[in-house]
Amino acid sequence: MTQPIGIFDSGYGGLTIMREIVNALPQYDYVYLGDNARTPYGTRSFETVYQYTLQCVRHLFEQGCQLVVLACNTASAKALRNIQQLDLPTLAPGPNGPSRRVLGVIRPTTEVIGRYSQTGQVGILATRGTVLSESYVVEIEKFFPGMGVFQEACPMWVPLVENDEFDKPGADYFVKQHIDRLLAQSPNIDTLLLACTHYPLLLPKIKQYTPPHVTILSQGEIVARSLADYLKRHPDLATRCSQSGERRFLTTDSAADFSRQATIFWGDTVTARQVVL
């Protein structure tokens, strides 16, 4: 049985993270699981997101995954800590702590975001659930104390992407509206983080309405570099992840619908299989 690296998201957006991870580490096997039947997570309670995410992590462990990346900001914000602290010791017991690992996308980003800002003021564009969790505010303070963090929830951005409207004229109003609101919070914001895996598809329009002196960061490359470093620092885990370049795609909803829609995010043809959790 293969022992792939698992990539989890509530829907399609995590494919933008997986694409960058595969580009950086093409030798490994990967299995992607999208919980499309229960998306979106951004509007759900902490407890619900935690339970849904835990079910998906369990399923990926059953697929042989030794390492699972929560390529979903909402799941990383609302579920990761509980899973790491409460569930992993039981799900994957080992002589020196859990034998398997679950990682998120928030920490790798917050570890480096301060390096991009000259003014010490950054803006976060995210779903309402991620904004309300305050996860970015808390984590950035750990690594860059005193940094100004300003947040803006963009509830229309995910629907625009998932309904294939991200590059249509109708998206301009909502993109400009939220960027203007965020930048109005402080004139010194010089770095914007796209803290949702769907948002890279809106990048051309985001750039259009963002002043040229403001740096825009997507998470994919940052997370991919962080994972590569993590595997170097944990060679025992890296050797347990199989390496035959296999990619599999799973969804909790229609496989045909997923395969069709996922192509937008993955950039290539996808053939998915439906699973029941």
Rank of each mutant, 00 (worst) to 15 (best):
A262K: 05
P89G: 04
L60N: 06
Q177I: 01
V122R: 07
I222L: 14
F166W: 14
A255V: 04
A77E: 05
Q85Y: 02
T74I: 12
P169I: 07
D29N: 14
Y41E: 11
N188L: 07
G14H: 13
L91G: 03
K232R: 15
F258K: 01
Y173H: 10
R100G: 01
D87S: 11
D236M: 09
M147H: 09
M147Q: 12
E221G: 00
T119R: 13
N96I: 08
R58Y: 05
R58N: 14
D87T: 05
L231G: 04
G120V: 11
K207H: 08
I83P: 06
T263I: 09
Y30A: 06
T269A: 14
L80T: 07
F258C: 07
L231C: 05
S254M: 03
Q51D: 14
L125T: 06
M1C: 00
R107N: 03
T210R: 01
Y28M: 07
I216T: 10
R81V: 05
L201W: 08
I106S: 00
E62R: 13
D229G: 06
V49T: 13
I206R: 02
R101T: 08
R247S: 06
P108M: 09
A79L: 12
L91I: 09
E152K: 12
L125Y: 08
P108H: 09
C65I: 14
V31E: 04
T119I: 04
D229H: 15
S135Q: 06
F144N: 07
R240K: 15
K207P: 00
F8D: 00
D167T: 09
L192C: 02
I206S: 01
P204D: 02
R101P: 00
D167A: 12
K176I: 04
P155N: 11
T191A: 06
V149L: 07
I206V: 15
F174H: 12
L192P: 01
F61G: 07
A92W: 00
D29Y: 06
Q274Y: 01
R38C: 06
R115L: 13
L250R: 02
E139V: 03
Q121G: 01
D180S: 07
K78E: 06
R19E: 11
T269I: 15
V270K: 09
V49P: 10
S259N: 05
L25V: 15
L227K: 12
A224Q: 03
